[in-house]
Design a protein around this nucleic acid. Structure first.
Length: 265
DNA sequence: ATGGTCGTCTCACGA
């Protein structure tokens, strides 16, 4: 069971990249963030043509999330509970017996801003939501653009980024509060090496100079920890023409034969 | 120190 996440920064612009990438990497599930389009415009037909069902929670111009799957998608949920928020940042569903939560966590702009408080509030609500969800679903994965670099190994220049947005103590504490619910960073289950990034700023030739951050994560519940076979970042599409500023991240969870789902026809 | 580049109902803002 391969589960991937990719902030595409406009699905309208990036649909050809998504299709090309899925044909090279036919993952079971692909979670998208920043699709930046309304639900009636979602390209269901083009994705169905390459074997993917989809559910989405979109809006015009900003945010927007979707789940693409080769298997049936059940019990879809959008948004955080008791949070009256027009920003479309969460979609969850059960696929092949795994609860998959796809999030586009707020960026936060800078630590002094109102957006930073919104981010921390959102993270606190997310922690409460996950705590409850883990009581219901022992096999749970939360994926997406977390807009937080977990530690200095995930930053090209940790000194320069000290206390900068995506790297503040408050954001990391909020992420730790989430992982303390019993969720493990799949990437760190597989390697302790520094210098792997999933996002590079469009400016200042950051990708060419590999000046990036690892902010796109796949966290898995303790019931799935032992089955995590690999977690890799595919930098390939970041080098394509007119790319997203993020690269896809893929985690592979081995399932026993009787748990392996059938592909849709 | 600033800005650099993308995407968006585009000359402003969010990332």
């Amino acid at each position: 069971m391969r589960i991937a996440t990719w902030n595409v920064n406009s699905l309208r612009v990036r649909l050809p990249h998504v299709i090309d990438w899925l044909q090279e990497n036919p993952v079971d599930v692909l979670a998208l963030q920043e699709i930046k389009q309304q639900d009636p415009d979602f390209p269901h037909q083009a994705l169905q043509a390459i074997g993917y069902h989809a559910v989405c929670s979109g809006q015009k111009t900003y945010n927007g999330v979707a789940l693409l799957s080769r298997h049936a998608i059940n019990d879809v949920e959008t948004g955080l509970p008791e949070h009256d928020d027009p920003q479309r940042r969460l979609i969850a569903a059960t696929i092949a017996g795994i609860r998959i939560v796809n999030v586009y966590i707020p960026n936060g702009e800078k630590p002094e801003s109102d957006k930073f408080h919104y981010k921390l509030d959102w993270l606190e609500r997310l922690r409460n939501y996950l705590q409850a969800a883990l009581q219901v679903y022992s096999r749970l994965v939360i994926v997406g653009d977390f807009n937080i670099a977990p530690d200095s190994r995930d930053i090209h220049d940790p000194e320069a980024w000290t206390n900068k947005i995506l790297c503040t103590v408050q954001e990391r504490e909020a992420l730790t509060a989430i992982t303390d619910c019993g969720l493990s960073d799949s990437f760190r289950l597989c390697t302790q090496e520094a210098g792997f990034y999933s996002w590079w700023d469009y400016r200042a030739a950051a990708f060419r100079r590999d000046r990036g951050l690892r902010i796109d994560l796949i966290l898995c519940s303790s019931a799935l920890k032992a089955s995590c076979q690999s977690c890799i970042i595919d930098k390939t599409p970041r080098g394509w023409e007119r790319p997203s500023d993020h690269a896809p991240v893929i985690a592979d969870f081995s399932l026993t034969n009787n748990e392996t789902p059938h592909e849709i026809s």
